[in-house]
């Protein structure tokens, strides 16, 4: 097989670029323009005049961001019509989880048509990378990541682990 070579020419630097002073002034022009335009917009906002926003900052807890419809947020476990968790403890989510943060223990289910159910179901949200693989893997659509809840931080690692009861709260 013939080797194809694509010659890459080095970008030419003319004297004006090489001296750098002009380039520095250009850069300063950009930053100064941003500075004064934004300053003007902030001042206008303070004075109550309508103007374009001077910053794109999201003030997080007070003014939460609008999430996309498919955003992966905190998990929940869905319920059946009788209120019991849909999970059949097949362990597919535990197996696929790249962060290995799901821990399930199974037990026999009292219902005849369903073989197993989860005795305990824990997700360590401190380890979870929010990849959504668990949702994709679940054969019975028992776990979803559509709560829109991002407010999961806790003061210690232990409280970052959510058990079945907590996960079913908004199931």
């Amino acid at each position: 097989m013939a080797v194809t070579v694509r010659p890459v020419t080095r970008p030419e630097r003319d004297l004006a670029v090489q001296v750098y002073i002009v380039e520095v002034l250009k850069g300063l022009g950009v930053t100064f323009r941003h500075f004064f335009v934004n300053l003007g917009r902030h001042a206008a906002a303070l004075a109550g005049v309508k103007a374009a926003p001077g910053a794109v900052t999201i003030q997080y807890p007070e003014d939460p961001p609008a999430l996309g419809g498919r955003a992966r947020t905190r998990h929940r476990i869905l319920r059946r019509s009788d209120g019991s968790p849909r999970c059949t403890a097949c362990l597919l989510c535990e197996t696929i989880c790249p962060a290995r943060c799901i821990r399930i223990t199974a037990e026999d289910s009292p219902a005849v048509v369903i073989e197993k159910r989860a005795k305990t179901f824990e997700i360590d949200l401190g380890l979870c990378v929010f990849c959504g693989n668990c949702v994709e893997a679940c054969p019975v659509d028992a776990i979803r990541m559509d709560t829109g809840d991002l407010d999961i931080p806790a003061m210690d690692r232990r409280s970052m682990i959510w058990d079945l009861e907590k996960l079913m709260r908004d199931g």
Binding site: F35, N38, L39, Q59
Partner: peptide, 10 residues
Amino acid sequence: KQSAVMQDRI
């Protein structure tokens, strides 16, 4: 503050 304002931040 100066860096923030010139970078469209607060």
